[in-house]
Amino acid sequence: MNSARTVLVVGGGAAGNAITVLLRRAGLDVDLIEAKDDWNATAGSGITLQGNALRVLRELGVWKQVEASGYGFGSVGITAPDGTVLHAQEDIRSGGDDLPATVGMQRPRLQRILIDAVRASGARVRLGVKATTFDQDHGGVTVRFTDGSEGRYDLVVAADGLGSATRAAIGITAKPEPTGMAIWRAAAPRPEGLVRTDLAYGGPAHIAGYCPTGATTLYAYVVETNRDRASIPPETYADEMRRLASAYGGFWPEITEHITDPAQVNYTWFDRMLVEGSWHRGRVVLIGDAAHCCPPTLAQGAALSLEDAWVLAQMLTATEDWDDALLQAYYERRVARVRPVVEASVQIGQWQLDGVRDADVPGLMGSTMTMLRELP
């Protein structure tokens, strides 16, 4: 591999950070730009990482930090709204038997671990900078930036998320579409005895759940039919989430009493998107949420994004021919795995919206996670 080859990574989330580390390890010259000055270092409450995400984090060399910072567990409970456990089952270890089935952790902590890995890799990082134009020819891409500078690259990797400006700039017209659901999320102290994710279906919300994220922390979430965001003033976010959550029993009363600060409550619609046909135009290629997104009903958003980075890095570093055929092969390899996850994630939510009482949610979860045990 020609170590003089240059790559621009647009976006410093999980996918962008991961591919930066992997390409730098292979000796490539990598620039990373991130639009936010703080590199998203404080955003979000918690994240659920399934085994296939952990497998990639191990490849990045950060598994030990993740393991020490998060909370690993191996089962999921289904409860009635009053907290009665109706069913508990062992999670499938989609990353292999030598990794936990699931790790919950605080999202800012995961981002800090990945930021440190990027810094240690020697990549050049610029924060508060966006790409404005991508001028391509047969030899590469000339990129102009909002700070007035420009650079020449052999490849641009667009990891700039759901609303990817790069996706639009290269003429891919796909956009996220609402699924009809929305989620309230908040961090809270972890009650003693809460050692796994439990999901309650029914009640005033479609789903109420929580995930332990550390020795003393968790994040809680409540899923409802989406509402016009303009009808919910941000200063009422804590009241709205607490109103929904207060109908649930079990650990919920102890969790709910800590949902008091509206600034610490996040409200987000569920979206779906899968870019069809190819994830590249010339030498600009999409990864992560820029290429696909799905509701978090299977907790696979970050995992699929990390897998994209791992697979693309493998393919780029295995050949000198960074051509259309290579990038098309990347798409075909990934879409065969991503599509069933997107479809299953949407289906689980649609069953809730439609009030399907006999839906086989555990069965669909199980078959999808079994597929994900295979290497991407």
Rank of each mutant, 00 (worst) to 15 (best):
I113Q: 03
S278E: 10
I287C: 13
A230P: 10
Q328K: 12
A200H: 00
P204S: 06
A208N: 03
S367T: 15
T179G: 03
M371N: 14
A159H: 04
L162A: 03
I115Y: 03
G44V: 01
G139D: 14
V157K: 00
P81C: 00
D147M: 10
A174Q: 11
A80M: 09
P234M: 02
G250T: 00
V21K: 11
L274A: 05
A174W: 13
G151W: 02
T217R: 09
G70N: 04
A208G: 05
P296V: 11
L8E: 04
E235P: 09
V285Q: 03
T79G: 04
A182N: 03
D289L: 08
P376W: 08
I113N: 02
D198A: 10
G11I: 04
V30E: 02
A182L: 07
V335A: 12
L218S: 08
M105V: 09
A302P: 05
E254S: 12
W279C: 05
T48C: 11
V342E: 01
T236K: 15
V356Q: 11
E254Y: 02
L364V: 13
P191H: 06
M273V: 04
P212A: 09
R24E: 07
L312G: 05
L155G: 02
V10C: 02
G363T: 06
L155D: 01
Q65N: 13
L327S: 06
G288S: 02
I348T: 01
V361Q: 13
L218N: 01
W351M: 09
V141H: 00
V141I: 10
T48M: 13
D137E: 08
N2S: 13
C293H: 13
M105S: 06
E235W: 08
D323Y: 12
V284S: 07
G72E: 09
D308L: 03
L306M: 10
L57S: 14
L353P: 10
R272T: 15
H138N: 11
A120R: 13
E254C: 07
E235V: 11
G202N: 07
I115G: 00
S45Q: 15
R196S: 15
Y221D: 06
A80Y: 05
D38W: 14
H258C: 07
V346R: 01
L326K: 08
G249C: 06
Y210G: 05
E307Y: 14
T370E: 15
D135F: 07
R196Y: 14
D354C: 12
S94N: 10
R373H: 14
A43F: 15
R107Y: 05
L127D: 07
Q136P: 02
Y71C: 05
Q136W: 01
A43C: 08
A329N: 14
A53K: 03
A329G: 12
G249W: 00
M181F: 06
G151D: 04
R126C: 09
E374H: 13
G27L: 09
W39R: 03
Q352K: 15
T317E: 14
V129Y: 01
T133E: 11
T133D: 11
H87A: 14
V157F: 05
